[in-house]
Design a protein around this nucleic acid. Structure first.
Lengths: 243, 243
DNA sequence: ACTTGACCCTTCCCCTGGGGCAGGGTTGCA
DNA sequence: TGCAACCCTGCCCCAGGGGAAGGGTCAAGT
Protein backbone atom coordinates (compact mmCIF):
# COMPACT_ATOMS: atom_id res chain seq x y z
CA UNK A 1 0.00 0.00 0.00
CA UNK A 2 1.55 3.22 -1.20
CA UNK A 3 1.33 6.74 0.18
CA UNK A 4 -0.21 9.77 -1.46
CA UNK A 5 3.17 11.07 -2.56
CA UNK A 6 4.10 7.86 -4.33
CA UNK A 7 0.73 7.71 -6.01
CA UNK A 8 1.09 11.31 -7.11
CA UNK A 9 4.55 10.77 -8.54
CA UNK A 10 3.45 7.69 -10.34
CA UNK A 11 0.34 9.07 -11.95
CA UNK A 12 2.05 12.38 -12.61
CA UNK A 13 -0.12 14.74 -10.62
CA UNK A 14 0.50 16.82 -7.52
CA UNK A 15 -0.45 15.67 -4.03
CA UNK A 16 -2.72 18.65 -3.85
CA UNK A 17 -4.58 17.52 -6.92
CA UNK A 18 -5.31 14.15 -5.35
CA UNK A 19 -6.62 15.77 -2.20
CA UNK A 20 -8.81 18.10 -4.27
CA UNK A 21 -10.24 15.09 -6.07
CA UNK A 22 -11.04 13.52 -2.70
CA UNK A 23 -12.72 16.71 -1.52
CA UNK A 24 -14.81 17.01 -4.65
CA UNK A 25 -15.92 13.44 -4.32
CA UNK A 26 -14.64 12.05 -7.59
CA UNK A 27 -11.92 9.96 -6.04
CA UNK A 28 -12.99 8.12 -2.88
CA UNK A 29 -10.87 8.54 0.22
CA UNK A 30 -8.90 5.38 0.94
CA UNK A 31 -8.44 3.90 4.40
CA UNK A 32 -5.84 5.48 6.66
CA UNK A 33 -2.92 3.72 8.33
CA UNK A 34 -2.24 3.91 12.06
CA UNK A 35 -0.74 7.39 11.80
CA UNK A 36 -3.59 8.79 9.74
CA UNK A 37 -1.82 8.64 6.38
CA UNK A 38 -3.87 7.75 3.34
CA UNK A 39 -2.85 4.38 1.90
CA UNK A 40 -3.60 3.48 -1.71
CA UNK A 41 -3.67 0.22 -3.63
CA UNK A 42 -3.26 -0.53 -7.28
CA UNK A 43 -6.98 -0.12 -7.93
CA UNK A 44 -6.76 3.42 -6.70
CA UNK A 45 -3.94 4.09 -9.12
CA UNK A 46 -6.06 2.79 -11.98
CA UNK A 47 -8.99 4.90 -10.90
CA UNK A 48 -6.83 7.97 -10.67
CA UNK A 49 -5.40 7.38 -14.11
CA UNK A 50 -8.90 7.20 -15.53
CA UNK A 51 -9.94 10.34 -13.70
CA UNK A 52 -6.87 12.15 -14.94
CA UNK A 53 -7.52 11.12 -18.50
CA UNK A 54 -10.94 12.70 -18.29
CA UNK A 55 -9.68 15.79 -16.47
CA UNK A 56 -6.97 16.35 -19.05
CA UNK A 57 -9.62 16.14 -21.71
CA UNK A 58 -11.16 19.16 -20.02
CA UNK A 59 -14.11 17.42 -18.39
CA UNK A 60 -15.21 19.41 -15.32
CA UNK A 61 -14.52 17.58 -12.08
CA UNK A 62 -18.18 17.60 -11.11
CA UNK A 63 -19.07 15.86 -14.35
CA UNK A 64 -16.39 13.25 -13.78
CA UNK A 65 -17.92 12.61 -10.37
CA UNK A 66 -21.33 12.06 -11.90
CA UNK A 67 -19.94 9.88 -14.65
CA UNK A 68 -18.53 7.47 -12.11
CA UNK A 69 -22.00 6.57 -10.93
CA UNK A 70 -23.43 6.37 -14.43
CA UNK A 71 -24.23 3.12 -16.14
CA UNK A 72 -22.03 1.84 -18.88
CA UNK A 73 -24.16 2.99 -21.76
CA UNK A 74 -24.39 6.54 -20.52
CA UNK A 75 -20.68 6.42 -19.84
CA UNK A 76 -19.85 5.40 -23.38
CA UNK A 77 -22.17 8.05 -24.72
CA UNK A 78 -20.45 10.68 -22.59
CA UNK A 79 -17.07 9.52 -23.82
CA UNK A 80 -18.18 10.00 -27.39
CA UNK A 81 -19.31 13.54 -26.62
CA UNK A 82 -16.05 14.32 -24.89
CA UNK A 83 -14.13 12.91 -27.82
CA UNK A 84 -16.05 15.10 -30.24
CA UNK A 85 -15.49 18.14 -28.12
CA UNK A 86 -11.78 17.40 -28.00
CA UNK A 87 -11.67 17.19 -31.76
CA UNK A 88 -13.40 20.51 -31.86
CA UNK A 89 -10.95 22.10 -29.45
CA UNK A 90 -7.99 20.81 -31.39
CA UNK A 91 -9.38 22.38 -34.53
CA UNK A 92 -9.91 25.64 -32.65
CA UNK A 93 -6.34 25.67 -31.43
CA UNK A 94 -5.05 25.10 -34.91
CA UNK A 95 -7.13 28.00 -36.20
CA UNK A 96 -5.75 30.16 -33.41
CA UNK A 97 -2.27 29.13 -34.40
CA UNK A 98 -2.97 30.26 -37.93
CA UNK A 99 -4.17 33.64 -36.75
CA UNK A 100 -1.13 33.92 -34.53
CA UNK A 101 1.15 33.45 -37.49
CA UNK A 102 -0.71 36.11 -39.43
CA UNK A 103 -0.23 38.39 -36.48
CA UNK A 104 3.49 37.60 -36.48
CA UNK A 105 3.76 38.24 -40.20
CA UNK A 106 1.71 41.41 -40.41
CA UNK A 107 2.49 42.94 -37.09
CA UNK A 108 3.85 46.22 -38.42
CA UNK A 109 1.77 46.69 -41.53
CA UNK A 110 -1.66 47.88 -40.48
CA UNK A 111 -2.26 49.28 -43.98
CA UNK A 112 -0.59 48.71 -47.34
CA UNK A 113 1.20 51.72 -48.76
CA UNK A 114 -1.21 52.12 -51.63
CA UNK A 115 -4.04 52.59 -49.15
CA UNK A 116 -2.12 55.34 -47.41
CA UNK A 117 -1.48 57.00 -50.76
CA UNK A 118 -5.15 56.72 -51.60
CA UNK A 119 -6.10 58.45 -48.35
CA UNK A 120 -3.81 61.34 -49.21
CA UNK A 121 -5.47 61.60 -52.61
CA UNK A 122 -8.81 61.91 -50.87
CA UNK A 123 -7.64 65.00 -48.99
CA UNK A 124 -6.35 66.57 -52.20
CA UNK A 125 -9.64 65.84 -53.96
CA UNK A 126 -11.48 67.94 -51.42
CA UNK A 127 -12.76 65.33 -48.99
CA UNK A 128 -13.01 66.59 -45.42
CA UNK A 129 -10.59 65.30 -42.76
CA UNK A 130 -13.57 63.71 -41.06
CA UNK A 131 -14.28 61.62 -44.14
CA UNK A 132 -10.64 60.69 -44.57
CA UNK A 133 -10.45 59.52 -40.97
CA UNK A 134 -13.57 57.43 -41.34
CA UNK A 135 -12.13 55.85 -44.45
CA UNK A 136 -8.88 55.10 -42.68
CA UNK A 137 -10.75 53.40 -39.82
CA UNK A 138 -12.78 51.41 -42.30
CA UNK A 139 -9.79 50.11 -44.20
CA UNK A 140 -7.84 49.28 -41.07
CA UNK A 141 -10.75 47.18 -39.89
CA UNK A 142 -11.28 45.51 -43.21
CA UNK A 143 -7.63 44.66 -43.70
CA UNK A 144 -7.33 43.34 -40.15
CA UNK A 145 -10.36 41.12 -40.33
CA UNK A 146 -10.47 40.05 -43.98
CA UNK A 147 -6.87 40.13 -45.16
CA UNK A 148 -7.71 37.96 -48.15
CA UNK A 149 -10.56 39.96 -49.65
CA UNK A 150 -9.57 43.44 -48.48
CA UNK A 151 -7.25 44.29 -51.35
CA UNK A 152 -9.88 43.41 -53.94
CA UNK A 153 -12.43 45.59 -52.26
CA UNK A 154 -9.92 48.38 -52.00
CA UNK A 155 -9.05 48.27 -55.68
CA UNK A 156 -12.71 48.41 -56.58
CA UNK A 157 -13.20 51.43 -54.37
CA UNK A 158 -10.07 53.18 -55.69
CA UNK A 159 -11.31 52.62 -59.21
CA UNK A 160 -14.64 54.24 -58.40
CA UNK A 161 -12.97 57.30 -56.98
CA UNK A 162 -10.71 57.60 -60.00
CA UNK A 163 -13.83 58.38 -62.06
CA UNK A 164 -14.48 62.11 -61.60
CA UNK A 165 -18.25 61.78 -61.98
CA UNK A 166 -18.51 59.10 -59.32
CA UNK A 167 -16.06 60.97 -57.11
CA UNK A 168 -18.45 63.93 -57.18
CA UNK A 169 -21.13 61.72 -55.67
CA UNK A 170 -18.91 60.75 -52.74
CA UNK A 171 -17.84 64.34 -52.27
CA UNK A 172 -21.48 65.29 -52.12
CA UNK A 173 -22.05 62.51 -49.57
CA UNK A 174 -19.19 63.85 -47.49
CA UNK A 175 -20.46 67.41 -47.58
CA UNK A 176 -24.05 66.40 -46.84
CA UNK A 177 -22.90 65.82 -43.27
CA UNK A 178 -24.09 69.20 -42.05
CA UNK A 179 -27.33 69.49 -44.01
CA UNK A 180 -30.70 69.30 -42.33
CA UNK A 181 -32.04 65.76 -42.32
CA UNK A 182 -35.02 66.80 -44.45
CA UNK A 183 -33.11 68.83 -46.99
CA UNK A 184 -34.41 67.83 -50.47
CA UNK A 185 -30.83 67.68 -51.80
CA UNK A 186 -30.43 64.53 -49.75
CA UNK A 187 -33.24 62.79 -51.61
CA UNK A 188 -31.73 63.82 -54.88
CA UNK A 189 -28.28 62.59 -53.88
CA UNK A 190 -29.65 59.27 -52.71
CA UNK A 191 -31.34 58.79 -56.04
CA UNK A 192 -28.17 59.55 -57.98
CA UNK A 193 -26.04 57.25 -55.84
CA UNK A 194 -28.47 54.36 -56.19
CA UNK A 195 -28.52 54.87 -59.91
CA UNK A 196 -24.75 54.94 -60.19
CA UNK A 197 -24.52 51.77 -58.14
CA UNK A 198 -26.97 49.99 -60.40
CA UNK A 199 -25.03 51.17 -63.38
CA UNK A 200 -21.75 49.86 -62.03
CA UNK A 201 -22.85 46.50 -60.69
CA UNK A 202 -26.06 45.84 -62.62
CA UNK A 203 -28.36 43.56 -60.69
CA UNK A 204 -25.48 41.66 -59.12
CA UNK A 205 -24.72 42.23 -55.49
CA UNK A 206 -22.07 44.87 -55.11
CA UNK A 207 -18.88 43.34 -53.67
CA UNK A 208 -19.31 43.10 -49.93
CA UNK A 209 -17.85 41.19 -47.04
CA UNK A 210 -20.77 38.80 -46.97
CA UNK A 211 -22.97 37.96 -44.06
CA UNK A 212 -20.27 36.44 -41.92
CA UNK A 213 -19.00 39.86 -40.95
CA UNK A 214 -20.79 42.81 -39.47
CA UNK A 215 -18.06 45.27 -40.23
CA UNK A 216 -19.82 47.26 -42.93
CA UNK A 217 -22.90 47.58 -40.74
CA UNK A 218 -20.74 48.50 -37.80
CA UNK A 219 -18.86 51.15 -39.72
CA UNK A 220 -22.00 52.43 -41.33
CA UNK A 221 -23.63 52.61 -37.94
CA UNK A 222 -20.78 54.67 -36.61
CA UNK A 223 -20.96 56.88 -39.70
CA UNK A 224 -24.69 57.40 -39.37
CA UNK A 225 -24.40 58.23 -35.71
CA UNK A 226 -22.35 61.31 -36.44
CA UNK A 227 -24.96 63.07 -38.56
CA UNK A 228 -28.74 62.87 -38.97
CA UNK A 229 -28.33 63.86 -42.61
CA UNK A 230 -25.97 60.97 -43.28
CA UNK A 231 -28.32 58.64 -41.52
CA UNK A 232 -31.25 59.71 -43.68
CA UNK A 233 -29.10 59.40 -46.78
CA UNK A 234 -28.18 55.83 -45.83
CA UNK A 235 -31.81 54.96 -45.23
CA UNK A 236 -32.89 56.38 -48.58
CA UNK A 237 -30.14 54.61 -50.50
CA UNK A 238 -31.05 51.27 -48.94
CA UNK A 239 -34.71 51.84 -49.74
CA UNK A 240 -33.96 52.54 -53.41
CA UNK A 241 -31.59 49.63 -53.66
CA UNK A 242 -34.04 47.16 -52.18
CA UNK A 243 -36.95 48.48 -54.20
CA UNK B 1 -17.27 55.74 -32.56
CA UNK B 2 -18.87 52.56 -31.37
CA UNK B 3 -19.97 51.49 -27.92
CA UNK B 4 -18.62 48.63 -25.86
CA UNK B 5 -21.51 46.38 -26.83
CA UNK B 6 -20.97 46.85 -30.54
CA UNK B 7 -17.27 46.26 -30.16
CA UNK B 8 -17.94 43.11 -28.15
CA UNK B 9 -20.37 41.73 -30.71
CA UNK B 10 -18.03 42.46 -33.52
CA UNK B 11 -14.91 40.94 -32.05
CA UNK B 12 -16.89 38.06 -30.57
CA UNK B 13 -16.25 38.53 -26.88
CA UNK B 14 -18.47 39.52 -23.97
CA UNK B 15 -18.71 43.05 -22.66
CA UNK B 16 -17.38 41.75 -19.38
CA UNK B 17 -14.28 40.44 -21.09
CA UNK B 18 -13.51 43.85 -22.51
CA UNK B 19 -13.91 45.48 -19.13
CA UNK B 20 -11.65 42.86 -17.57
CA UNK B 21 -9.01 43.62 -20.18
CA UNK B 22 -9.25 47.28 -19.27
CA UNK B 23 -8.90 46.50 -15.60
CA UNK B 24 -5.88 44.31 -16.14
CA UNK B 25 -4.23 46.99 -18.22
CA UNK B 26 -3.83 45.12 -21.48
CA UNK B 27 -6.41 47.12 -23.34
CA UNK B 28 -6.26 50.85 -22.66
CA UNK B 29 -9.44 52.57 -21.60
CA UNK B 30 -10.80 54.75 -24.42
CA UNK B 31 -12.24 58.20 -23.92
CA UNK B 32 -15.76 58.48 -22.61
CA UNK B 33 -18.61 60.33 -24.24
CA UNK B 34 -20.73 62.94 -22.47
CA UNK B 35 -22.72 60.34 -20.58
CA UNK B 36 -19.68 58.40 -19.42
CA UNK B 37 -19.94 55.60 -21.99
CA UNK B 38 -16.72 54.22 -23.43
CA UNK B 39 -16.36 55.00 -27.14
CA UNK B 40 -14.12 52.93 -29.38
CA UNK B 41 -12.62 53.47 -32.81
CA UNK B 42 -11.42 51.05 -35.45
CA UNK B 43 -7.92 50.96 -33.98
CA UNK B 44 -9.34 49.71 -30.74
CA UNK B 45 -11.09 46.92 -32.61
CA UNK B 46 -7.79 45.93 -34.22
CA UNK B 47 -6.04 45.99 -30.87
CA UNK B 48 -8.73 43.89 -29.31
CA UNK B 49 -8.55 41.34 -32.11
CA UNK B 50 -4.82 41.00 -31.54
CA UNK B 51 -5.29 40.63 -27.81
CA UNK B 52 -7.97 38.01 -28.34
CA UNK B 53 -5.75 36.05 -30.68
CA UNK B 54 -3.11 35.86 -27.99
CA UNK B 55 -5.61 35.12 -25.23
CA UNK B 56 -7.16 32.29 -27.22
CA UNK B 57 -3.71 30.87 -27.67
CA UNK B 58 -3.64 30.57 -23.89
CA UNK B 59 -1.27 33.42 -23.17
CA UNK B 60 -1.92 34.77 -19.66
CA UNK B 61 -3.41 38.24 -19.67
CA UNK B 62 -0.52 39.64 -17.65
CA UNK B 63 1.92 38.41 -20.27
CA UNK B 64 -0.13 39.99 -23.05
CA UNK B 65 0.04 43.25 -21.15
CA UNK B 66 3.82 43.04 -20.95
CA UNK B 67 4.13 42.07 -24.60
CA UNK B 68 2.38 45.23 -25.67
CA UNK B 69 5.21 47.33 -24.30
CA UNK B 70 7.92 45.05 -25.68
CA UNK B 71 9.98 45.94 -28.71
CA UNK B 72 9.36 44.22 -31.97
CA UNK B 73 12.18 41.72 -31.74
CA UNK B 74 11.13 40.52 -28.30
CA UNK B 75 7.56 40.39 -29.55
CA UNK B 76 8.42 38.18 -32.48
CA UNK B 77 10.47 35.94 -30.22
CA UNK B 78 7.54 35.64 -27.84
CA UNK B 79 5.24 34.78 -30.70
CA UNK B 80 7.53 31.95 -31.71
CA UNK B 81 7.50 30.59 -28.16
CA UNK B 82 3.73 30.82 -28.01
CA UNK B 83 3.47 29.07 -31.34
CA UNK B 84 5.70 26.24 -30.13
CA UNK B 85 3.72 25.89 -26.97
CA UNK B 86 0.52 25.75 -28.95
CA UNK B 87 1.93 22.96 -31.08
CA UNK B 88 2.83 21.18 -27.90
CA UNK B 89 -0.63 21.58 -26.45
CA UNK B 90 -2.25 20.29 -29.61
CA UNK B 91 -0.07 17.20 -29.44
CA UNK B 92 -1.00 16.76 -25.79
CA UNK B 93 -4.68 16.95 -26.56
CA UNK B 94 -4.33 14.37 -29.28
CA UNK B 95 -2.54 12.04 -26.87
CA UNK B 96 -5.31 12.58 -24.36
CA UNK B 97 -7.83 11.72 -27.03
CA UNK B 98 -5.99 8.48 -27.68
CA UNK B 99 -6.03 7.55 -24.01
CA UNK B 100 -9.70 8.44 -23.88
CA UNK B 101 -10.44 5.98 -26.64
CA UNK B 102 -8.52 3.27 -24.87
CA UNK B 103 -10.58 4.04 -21.82
CA UNK B 104 -13.74 3.71 -23.87
CA UNK B 105 -12.61 0.41 -25.33
CA UNK B 106 -11.32 -1.26 -22.17
CA UNK B 107 -13.62 0.21 -19.62
CA UNK B 108 -14.96 -3.03 -18.20
CA UNK B 109 -11.98 -5.34 -18.54
CA UNK B 110 -9.56 -4.57 -15.74
CA UNK B 111 -7.89 -7.98 -16.09
CA UNK B 112 -8.01 -10.65 -18.80
CA UNK B 113 -9.59 -13.90 -17.73
CA UNK B 114 -6.37 -15.84 -18.00
CA UNK B 115 -4.82 -13.59 -15.39
CA UNK B 116 -7.69 -14.25 -13.03
CA UNK B 117 -7.28 -17.97 -13.62
CA UNK B 118 -3.56 -17.67 -12.95
CA UNK B 119 -4.22 -15.94 -9.64
CA UNK B 120 -6.46 -18.81 -8.59
CA UNK B 121 -3.69 -21.25 -9.50
CA UNK B 122 -1.36 -19.34 -7.20
CA UNK B 123 -3.63 -19.97 -4.25
CA UNK B 124 -3.84 -23.67 -5.04
CA UNK B 125 -0.07 -23.90 -5.36
CA UNK B 126 0.32 -22.74 -1.79
CA UNK B 127 0.97 -19.04 -2.17
CA UNK B 128 -0.39 -16.95 0.70
CA UNK B 129 -3.41 -14.66 0.14
CA UNK B 130 -1.07 -11.75 0.80
CA UNK B 131 1.09 -12.76 -2.15
CA UNK B 132 -1.90 -13.34 -4.37
CA UNK B 133 -3.28 -9.89 -3.58
CA UNK B 134 0.04 -8.26 -4.30
CA UNK B 135 0.19 -10.06 -7.63
CA UNK B 136 -3.32 -8.97 -8.48
CA UNK B 137 -2.45 -5.33 -7.73
CA UNK B 138 0.67 -5.63 -9.80
CA UNK B 139 -1.09 -6.99 -12.87
CA UNK B 140 -3.91 -4.51 -12.65
CA UNK B 141 -1.40 -1.71 -12.68
CA UNK B 142 0.64 -3.19 -15.47
CA UNK B 143 -2.35 -3.86 -17.68
CA UNK B 144 -3.75 -0.40 -17.07
CA UNK B 145 -0.56 1.45 -17.80
CA UNK B 146 1.13 -0.72 -20.44
CA UNK B 147 -1.70 -2.48 -22.25
CA UNK B 148 0.57 -3.34 -25.17
CA UNK B 149 3.38 -5.06 -23.29
CA UNK B 150 1.47 -6.44 -20.35
CA UNK B 151 0.30 -9.66 -21.92
CA UNK B 152 3.84 -10.58 -22.98
CA UNK B 153 5.14 -10.02 -19.50
CA UNK B 154 2.30 -12.02 -18.07
CA UNK B 155 2.91 -14.99 -20.33
CA UNK B 156 6.58 -14.96 -19.38
CA UNK B 157 5.67 -14.93 -15.71
CA UNK B 158 3.07 -17.66 -16.09
CA UNK B 159 5.62 -19.82 -17.85
CA UNK B 160 8.07 -19.40 -14.99
CA UNK B 161 5.50 -20.46 -12.44
CA UNK B 162 4.56 -23.50 -14.50
CA UNK B 163 8.04 -24.88 -13.80
CA UNK B 164 7.87 -26.57 -10.38
CA UNK B 165 11.50 -25.82 -9.52
CA UNK B 166 11.13 -22.13 -10.23
CA UNK B 167 7.77 -22.06 -8.50
CA UNK B 168 9.48 -23.32 -5.37
CA UNK B 169 11.70 -20.24 -5.40
CA UNK B 170 8.72 -17.91 -5.50
CA UNK B 171 6.98 -19.88 -2.79
CA UNK B 172 10.09 -19.48 -0.69
CA UNK B 173 10.07 -15.74 -1.42
CA UNK B 174 6.47 -15.57 -0.32
CA UNK B 175 7.07 -17.44 2.90
CA UNK B 176 10.21 -15.48 3.73
CA UNK B 177 7.89 -12.63 4.66
CA UNK B 178 7.97 -13.41 8.36
CA UNK B 179 11.62 -14.39 8.73
CA UNK B 180 14.09 -12.21 10.61
CA UNK B 181 15.86 -9.82 8.30
CA UNK B 182 19.21 -11.41 9.10
CA UNK B 183 18.12 -15.03 8.76
CA UNK B 184 20.78 -16.86 6.70
CA UNK B 185 18.06 -18.57 4.68
CA UNK B 186 17.43 -15.21 3.03
CA UNK B 187 21.00 -15.01 1.71
CA UNK B 188 20.67 -18.52 0.37
CA UNK B 189 17.37 -17.76 -1.33
CA UNK B 190 18.72 -14.58 -2.89
CA UNK B 191 21.61 -16.56 -4.35
CA UNK B 192 19.35 -19.20 -5.80
CA UNK B 193 16.97 -16.62 -7.32
CA UNK B 194 19.79 -14.66 -8.92
CA UNK B 195 21.17 -17.87 -10.35
CA UNK B 196 17.83 -18.95 -11.78
CA UNK B 197 17.36 -15.54 -13.34
CA UNK B 198 20.75 -15.74 -15.02
CA UNK B 199 19.90 -19.19 -16.27
CA UNK B 200 16.64 -18.09 -17.77
CA UNK B 201 17.67 -14.82 -19.38
CA UNK B 202 21.44 -15.22 -19.78
CA UNK B 203 23.16 -11.88 -19.79
CA UNK B 204 20.24 -10.18 -21.53
CA UNK B 205 18.11 -7.86 -19.55
CA UNK B 206 15.11 -9.66 -18.17
CA UNK B 207 11.93 -8.31 -19.78
CA UNK B 208 10.93 -5.19 -17.95
CA UNK B 209 8.79 -2.18 -18.51
CA UNK B 210 11.80 -0.04 -19.31
CA UNK B 211 12.84 3.18 -17.71
CA UNK B 212 9.81 5.17 -18.79
CA UNK B 213 7.73 3.65 -16.03
CA UNK B 214 8.29 3.49 -12.30
CA UNK B 215 5.70 0.84 -11.72
CA UNK B 216 8.02 -2.03 -10.88
CA UNK B 217 9.92 0.16 -8.43
CA UNK B 218 6.67 1.37 -6.96
CA UNK B 219 5.29 -2.09 -6.53
CA UNK B 220 8.55 -3.41 -5.23
CA UNK B 221 8.69 -0.51 -2.79
CA UNK B 222 5.25 -1.34 -1.50
CA UNK B 223 6.24 -4.98 -1.27
CA UNK B 224 9.41 -4.21 0.64
CA UNK B 225 7.64 -1.92 3.03
CA UNK B 226 5.54 -4.75 4.37
CA UNK B 227 8.44 -6.91 5.60
CA UNK B 228 12.06 -6.26 6.55
CA UNK B 229 12.94 -9.77 5.38
CA UNK B 230 11.51 -9.11 1.91
CA UNK B 231 13.32 -5.84 1.78
CA UNK B 232 16.65 -7.49 2.57
CA UNK B 233 15.94 -10.18 0.01
CA UNK B 234 15.31 -7.55 -2.65
CA UNK B 235 18.55 -5.76 -1.78
CA UNK B 236 20.57 -8.97 -1.97
CA UNK B 237 19.09 -10.04 -5.30
CA UNK B 238 19.86 -6.64 -6.84
CA UNK B 239 23.41 -6.79 -5.50
CA UNK B 240 24.01 -10.21 -7.06
CA UNK B 241 22.42 -9.21 -10.33
CA UNK B 242 24.49 -6.06 -10.69
CA UNK B 243 27.73 -7.76 -9.64
C1' DA C 1 18.67 9.02 22.27
C1' DC C 2 18.66 12.82 19.20
C1' DT C 3 18.61 15.20 15.09
C1' DT C 4 17.70 15.94 10.34
C1' DG C 5 15.14 15.70 6.21
C1' DA C 6 11.50 13.98 3.87
C1' DC C 7 6.91 12.85 4.32
C1' DC C 8 2.19 13.39 5.82
C1' DC C 9 -2.03 15.95 7.94
C1' DT C 10 -5.59 20.02 7.89
C1' DT C 11 -6.93 24.76 7.22
C1' DC C 12 -6.81 28.90 4.99
C1' DC C 13 -6.02 32.33 1.62
C1' DC C 14 -4.51 33.43 -3.30
C1' DC C 15 -4.68 33.31 -8.41
C1' DT C 16 -6.77 33.53 -13.28
C1' DG C 17 -10.46 34.45 -16.54
C1' DG C 18 -14.19 35.64 -16.50
C1' DG C 19 -20.04 35.14 -15.26
C1' DG C 20 -23.78 37.19 -13.03
C1' DC C 21 -26.32 40.27 -10.17
C1' DA C 22 -27.60 44.60 -7.91
C1' DG C 23 -28.64 49.32 -8.21
C1' DG C 24 -28.46 53.13 -10.92
C1' DG C 25 -28.09 56.27 -15.20
C1' DT C 26 -28.81 56.95 -20.62
C1' DT C 27 -30.46 56.28 -24.99
C1' DG C 28 -33.69 55.56 -28.96
C1' DC C 29 -38.18 54.60 -30.59
C1' DA C 30 -43.44 54.59 -30.40
C1' DT D 1 -44.30 58.95 -21.54
C1' DG D 2 -43.04 54.66 -21.28
C1' DC D 3 -40.38 50.79 -22.48
C1' DA D 4 -36.60 48.15 -24.08
C1' DA D 5 -32.06 48.03 -24.67
C1' DC D 6 -27.90 49.93 -23.48
C1' DC D 7 -24.33 51.51 -20.34
C1' DC D 8 -21.95 52.31 -15.60
C1' DT D 9 -19.58 50.55 -11.06
C1' DG D 10 -19.04 47.34 -7.41
C1' DC D 11 -19.51 43.08 -5.55
C1' DC D 12 -19.49 38.07 -4.99
C1' DC D 13 -19.03 33.45 -7.26
C1' DC D 14 -16.98 29.55 -9.95
C1' DA D 15 -13.17 25.86 -11.22
C1' DG D 16 -8.78 23.91 -10.52
C1' DG D 17 -5.60 24.02 -8.21
C1' DG D 18 -0.83 26.54 -5.71
C1' DG D 19 1.36 27.67 -1.59
C1' DA D 20 2.02 28.69 3.18
C1' DA D 21 1.11 27.95 8.13
C1' DG D 22 1.36 24.95 11.93
C1' DG D 23 1.81 20.46 13.40
C1' DG D 24 2.59 15.15 13.47
C1' DT D 25 5.45 10.84 11.62
C1' DC D 26 9.11 8.06 9.94
C1' DA D 27 13.72 6.41 8.58
C1' DA D 28 18.67 7.19 8.63
C1' DG D 29 22.70 8.57 10.60
C1' DT D 30 25.38 9.76 14.69
Amino acid sequence: MITIGQLARYVGVSIKTIRVYHDKGLFPEPDRDASGYRRYGANDAIDLIKIRTLAEAGVPLARIRDLRSANDEAFQQALREIDDELTHRIRGLRATQGRLRQLAAGHLTPLPDEVGAHLEHLARWGFTPRWVDLQRDLWILVFATHPDRAITLFHDQAEILADPALRQLFLAYDHAHDLDADDPRIDDLARRIAEATRERYGLDEPPELEGASEIPALIQGAVNASSPAWQRLDTLIRAQRDA
